[in-house]
Each structure stands twice: as C-alpha cells, then as structure tokens.
C-alpha cells in the first residue's frame, strides 16, 4: 500500500514537472518567433515604402515629361530594316530608330489605336513619333500612323457645275480645286440668325468665303483635293 502511494506520488511529480517544463519552453519560443515576425514586418514595410516612393517618382517624371513632350511629325521618305527617314513640314529630316524592347507602333483609325508591327510602316505614311531625340536621330518609344489633315479658308473664284468642283483662292494666295463629293459635309452660315445650316452645292456663289477641310495626299501637283467639309459664308454677310 505504501509503495503504491509512493509510486503514485512520484508519477504525479514527474508529470507535473514535464508539464511545467513544456509550458516554459513554449513561452520561450513564442517570444523568439515574435521578435522575428516584428523584424520581418518592419523590413517588409520599409521595402514596400521605398518601392511605392520609387513608383511615385517614376510616374511623376513620366507625367512631367508627357506634359512638355512635343512629338516629331512627318512623312516617311525612306524605310530601311529597323530605321526610317522622315521629313517634317519645316523640311527637316530625321532618322527614326526602332528599339527592340521599347518601340511600339500604332495605326490610328477613326477613334481607335490598333497596335501593329513596325514593319507595316510604308513610304509616304504620315507618322507621329515620341521618343528621345539626339541631334537628328530619334529613338522611338511610340510611333503612330495618322492622316495629314489640312484646314484652310479662302474665296470661291470659280464654280464648275458639271463636275461639282470649286476653284478657291486661299488666304495664302494659292489656287486650289476642291471636289465636292456626296460625302462632303456642306454647311452654310445663315447671315440673319448666325447659325450654321446644312446646305447644298447649288447655294454656293462666286465670291463667297469658304472654310475647308481635306486630307493631304502629298505629291499633288494639280492641287486638287477631295473636300471632307466645307463651310460657306455668303458674300452678303460682308456687305454693310
């Protein structure tokens, strides 16, 4: 009986000791893990902050660059592998280089930009180039193929009713011929209400002032263009 009691007591003491020891060990590890977690969290936070700061700076720089950025615009006169030569309206020539990684080319059509391959650019295309310029060489980041639109005004000096065309003396003292197509948008100023109204070819008279819009098709020696839009101010408007 006594031995049994002693045995029981010893077992009890051993169990309690083991239990206590295990609890103590757990607590010690927990502390150590917490420290590590705290350190990791702090480091990660710093890294994230630095990353976010860098991104903010980069986007601000891009924004500032975009604000003051002026593209180079011109007609393609030569295509060679990964290089183009263009001429601007000021008769300045530039070399355009493609970057394998950065250069992106887009075709503008209506109100959409469609990404295309650089190789699709052809001679006589009218392009807008964005990228760093060094002397007369541009390393293109972006290239957009667009249309060259001409907007002008002048006076109607001759009306050809048989082929629906107008001879115009422009404000730059140049004579051009405008073909009025079925698709040409024709507007006429109502001189009483000063409102623009849709009109027709028959209402145009010699001496009327005309504002016009057409696409420049380059190499046009005849100076004959298909008018996209015309706006007529009747000559009666200018009579006191």
């Amino acid at each position: 009986m006594r031995i049994k009691k002693n045995l029981l007591l010893v077992c009890f003491i051993v169990i309690v000791t083991i239990f206590v020891l295990s609890q103590v060990k757990k607590g010690f590890f927990a502390l150590a893990v917490d420290d590590k977690v705290v350190t990791t969290t702090t480091e990660e936070k710093e890294v994230n902050e630095i990353r976010s700061f860098k991104e903010k700076i980069a986007s601000k720089v891009t924004e500032l660059q975009k604000k003051d950025q002026k593209p180079i615009v011109g007609k393609v006169i030569e295509v060679k592998n990964d290089q183009l030569k263009i001429i601007t309206s000021d008769r300045e020539e530039y070399q355009v280089k493609k970057d394998e990684v950065l250069t992106k080319t887009y075709q503008i059509s209506g109100n959409r930009e469609k990404e295309i391959d650089f190789s699709k650019i052809e001679k006589n295309d009218y392009i807008i180039i964005v990228g760093p310029i060094l002397e007369k060489t541009i390393t293109a980041n972006f290239i957009y193929i667009d249309e060259k639109i001409i907007i002008g005004s002048g006076r109607v000096i001759e009306i050809n009713k048989s082929d629906y065309s107008l001879k115009v003396l422009t404000s730059e003292k140049e004579e051009i011929v405008l073909d009025i197509e079925t698709s040409t948008k024709q507007l006429l100023l109502n001189i009483k209400s000063l409102v623009l109204e849709t009109s027709g070819f028959s209402k145009i008279k010699d001496g009327d002032t005309i504002h016009f819009v057409f696409k420049d098709n380059f190499n046009n020696k005849e100076k004959r263009y298909s008018a996209r839009k015309i706006l007529i101010i009747p000559q009666e408007y200018f009579i006191k």
Binding site: I128, Y144, D146, I149, I151, L194, L196, R228, K229
Partner: peptide, 26 residues
C-alpha cells in the same frame, strides 16, 4: 474648325473660352 468639329460663336466681351473635342492623333 477641326477635322471632327466646327463651332461658331460671337463674343460680347473681348475674351472668349470654349471646350473643344479632340480626335486621336494630330
């Protein structure tokens, strides 16, 4: 006037201001 819009206005004062839409590209 532009390729996509034409606007006509008269100014009562010397200064004038108007919002004008843009097309993609030039």
């Amino acid at each position: 006037q532009s390729a996509i819009k034409e606007t006509l206005l008269t100014n009562e004062k010397e200064s004038f201001e108007i919002d004008f839409p843009l097309a993609l590209g030039e």
